[in-house]
Amino acid sequence: MGILEVKGVNKRFGGLQALGDVNLSVAENTVHAIIGPNGAGKSTLLNVLVGKLIPDSGSVMFDGNSVLGRQPYEINQMGISRVFQTPEIFADLSVIENVMIPCFAKRDGAFRMHAIESVGNEKNIREQAEAMLDDVNMLDKRNMIASVMSRGDKRRLEMAMCLVQEPRLLLLDEPTAGMARADTNNTIDLLKEIKEKRDITMAIIEHDMHVVFSLADRITVLAQGTPLVEDTPEKIKGHPKVKEAYLGEAAH
């Protein structure tokens, strides 16, 4: 039984079957990649997982609780953090504040009227955030305004913001989309480092095979809204169905 269980999920947009009978199980402490060509339904599936879309039928269970119909912040409070295609950070705030906000969210929940306390007196939160920044080698940048950093650093910061909450599942939505090769490799190294350092479950939606094969423990191949195969990277590499899905008829 995996920590994330997707069972029989269907989603239609008008005449288009975006997801058809998707079954997926992500086991704890593994990196599970979901790949597929453009239009395979990867993003739709992700939006279902984070509560942005409600499927027509089927269930999505996280640790025994349904995530369907919940607000994104409730899903986060259940223990799912999300990394976006383009880093979503608090661009006007300093790096340390960016990391302190998730710490507050973890400690205080979705809302707390803590208007009289001072951020300056929250020593635990600050230490927690600084330790996290140290972990991703960004401690020297803590007082920088986040918007002036390089794209690679923004990605690193977003990762830190997710990891500091110690999520039980980290969702990554094409973390290397639109990146140059060097940036892509940096991101892969960062993810590998994270995977080695801590027990973490990750689900990666990705287009780039290179990223997937160097990280994933298991891979699900999605095509036209349905999972084709699910297996280890080694087996997926040579799988005829995968070649067909990615390369079309020409592969025969």
């Binding site: 912040y73 986060n76 950070i89 608090f90 661009a91 705030l93 906000i101 969210a105 913001m161």
Partner: peptide, 18 residues
């Protein structure tokens, strides 16, 4: 701080559990 986070990036804030 949370109010400034609302101004800066509401999407990130909701996905941060707030």
């Amino acid at each position: 701080l949370m109010l400034r986070a609302v101004k800066s990036n509401q999407n990130r804030l909701t996905f941060t559990g707030v």
